[in-house]
Simulated assay, not measured.
Amino acid sequence: MTITDQAAAPAKGPSMILQLAVLLAMTGAAVGGGWFAGNYLGQAGGHEGAVAEKAAPAGGHGAPEAGHGEEAEANPLLVPLPPMTTNLAAPSRVWVRMELSLLLDAAQPPELIETIHQDLFAYMRTLKLHQIEGASGYQHLKSDLEERARIRSDGHVKQVLIRTLLFE
Rank of each mutant, 00 (worst) to 15 (best):
A44W: 11
A55E: 12
A66I: 10
H47E: 14
E70K: 06
E73L: 12
L81P: 05
G42C: 15
L78Y: 11
G32R: 02
E65V: 04
A37F: 07
N39F: 05
A72Q: 11
H47F: 12
G34H: 02
F36D: 03
L88Y: 04
L77H: 13
G62W: 11
G60I: 12
G45R: 06
G59Q: 12
E48I: 09
E71W: 09
G69S: 11
A72F: 00
L77D: 06
H47Y: 12
G32L: 12
H68N: 02
A37K: 00
H47L: 13
A58K: 01
E70H: 05
G34W: 00
E73A: 09
M84Q: 08
G42I: 05
L78A: 03
W35R: 06
G33F: 08
H61A: 08
G34M: 03
E70M: 06
E71F: 05
G59P: 01
A44V: 15
P82Q: 15
G59H: 01
Q43D: 12
A44Y: 13
A89E: 15
A50N: 11
V51K: 02
A90D: 14
G59V: 10
P91N: 06
T86V: 05
W35D: 01
L81M: 09
N87G: 03
A89Y: 15
G46H: 13
A44S: 14
A56D: 15
L81S: 09
G42K: 08
T85L: 10
A72N: 06
P57M: 08
H61L: 15
A50T: 05
L88P: 04
K54D: 12
P91E: 06
P80D: 02
A56P: 08
A74K: 13
A37E: 05
N39G: 13
T85W: 00
Q43C: 02
E65A: 13
H61C: 02
G34N: 04
G33A: 14
A63F: 09
A90C: 00
L78M: 05
A50D: 10
N75C: 04
G69P: 01
E48T: 14
E53Y: 03
L81G: 07
L78F: 02
A74L: 10
E73H: 01
A52S: 06
Y40W: 09
V79M: 09
P76I: 09
H47N: 09
A90R: 10
T85E: 14
N75G: 04
G67C: 03
N39L: 07
A55T: 09
A58R: 05
N39D: 03
G33V: 13
M84P: 00
Y40N: 00
G38M: 02
N39K: 10
G34I: 01
A56N: 15
G59I: 09
G46Q: 14
W35I: 07
P91V: 10
A52G: 02
E71P: 00
P83S: 08
V51P: 03
A44T: 14
P57H: 06
G33E: 08
E65I: 01
L77W: 03
P76V: 12
K54W: 07
H68L: 10
G45K: 14
P57R: 06
A90E: 14
G62I: 07
A66H: 02
Q43A: 10
G38L: 00
A58G: 01
L81W: 09
A90N: 08
A89W: 15
A66T: 14
